[in-house]
Simulated scan of single mutants.
Amino acid sequence: MNEAICLLARSVGVDAQGFLNVQDFLTCKRSAGPSCLVLDIRLRGSSGLALQDLLKSEHDPIPVIFVTGHADIPMSVRAMKAGAIDFLTKPFRDQDLLDAIAISLERDAARLIQERQDNDVHVRFEAMVEREREVMAAAAAGKLSKQIADELGISEVTVRVYRSSAMRKMRANSFAELVLLAHRLGIVVKDDRNSLN
């Protein structure tokens, strides 16, 4: 079954590698590109569900597709609740597995793109001076230039200079985009004085 699945994936141009036990998979060097794991419920010395739990506990985002000849409803529900892409019962149609692999690789590719974008945003934020970060956070929280100037002990003109510099360094084309980036970074501080109860 292991070799058959690898051959099937390779037949459509997907680079596939088979593993006969959990340890071999865990110690292998994985590709930096999109990937997924086709996983049997029953494994030598372990279970596919236990491996899925381990990957989840280690924050390993690899998409998982389960295949099994011994399925029951609670097992499939548990796998899907834990984030499995699909749960196929043997014998399954080759096309069903290929479709699940294609969906998994698309999702993982999208995740990798998002991670790279998030990393780029963090790198740009870290390249700013502390005052630019403070002004960006305060402005994104909805504070006016006068409020920010009073809090930071600088002039409104200086606030506008820092805000403009923050927009340039964060590559924000508008103030609204700067606010979105600040929220993405999680740096917007709620001002309780302006909140309604």
Rank of each mutant, 00 (worst) to 15 (best):
E3Y: 05
A4T: 14
C6M: 07
C6Q: 11
L7I: 07
L8N: 09
A9Q: 03
A9L: 13
S11A: 07
G13D: 07
G13C: 08
A16F: 03
Q17G: 00
G18D: 03
F19D: 05
L20P: 00
L20E: 14
L20F: 02
N21A: 05
V22S: 07
Q23T: 12
D24K: 06
D24M: 09
L26Q: 09
T27I: 12
K29A: 14
R30K: 15
S31I: 05
S31K: 08
S31V: 00
A32P: 06
G33C: 05
P34R: 13
P34K: 10
S35Q: 13
C36P: 06
C36A: 08
R44Q: 13
R44A: 11
G45L: 10
Q52F: 01
D53H: 12
D53R: 15
L54F: 10
L54K: 14
L55K: 10
L55C: 10
S57E: 15
S57K: 13
S57L: 12
E58I: 01
H59K: 14
D60V: 11
P61L: 11
P61D: 15
F66N: 07
V67Q: 05
V67E: 03
V67F: 02
G69P: 00
H70P: 00
A71I: 07
I73M: 14
M75E: 11
V77L: 08
V77Q: 05
V77E: 04
V77F: 02
K81D: 13
I85R: 08
L88D: 01
P91H: 07
F92K: 06
D94P: 08
D94L: 00
Q95M: 08
D96T: 06
L98A: 00
L105N: 02
L105E: 03
R107I: 01
A110Q: 13
A110L: 15
A110P: 00
R111Y: 12
L112E: 02
L112G: 03
I113D: 11
Q114D: 14
R116S: 14
D118K: 11
D120M: 13
V121C: 08
V121P: 00
V123N: 09
E126L: 14
E126G: 02
A127I: 09
A127G: 09
M128P: 03
V129D: 15
R131K: 13
E132G: 05
E134F: 06
E134R: 12
E134Q: 15
M136L: 15
A137K: 12
A137W: 05
A140S: 11
A140M: 06
S145Y: 07
K146A: 14
Q147W: 06
Q147G: 01
I148K: 02
A149L: 12
A149Y: 03
D150C: 01
D150E: 15
G153Q: 02
S155R: 06
V157M: 10
T158K: 12
R160W: 06
R163E: 14
M167C: 07
R168H: 07
K169L: 13
K169A: 04
M170D: 01
M170G: 03
M170I: 05
M170R: 02
R171V: 04
R171S: 09
N173Y: 02
S174P: 05
A176W: 04
A176C: 07
E177C: 00
L181T: 03
A182T: 03
H183I: 00
H183A: 09
R184H: 04
L185P: 02
I187M: 06
V188A: 09
K190I: 14
S195L: 13
L196T: 14
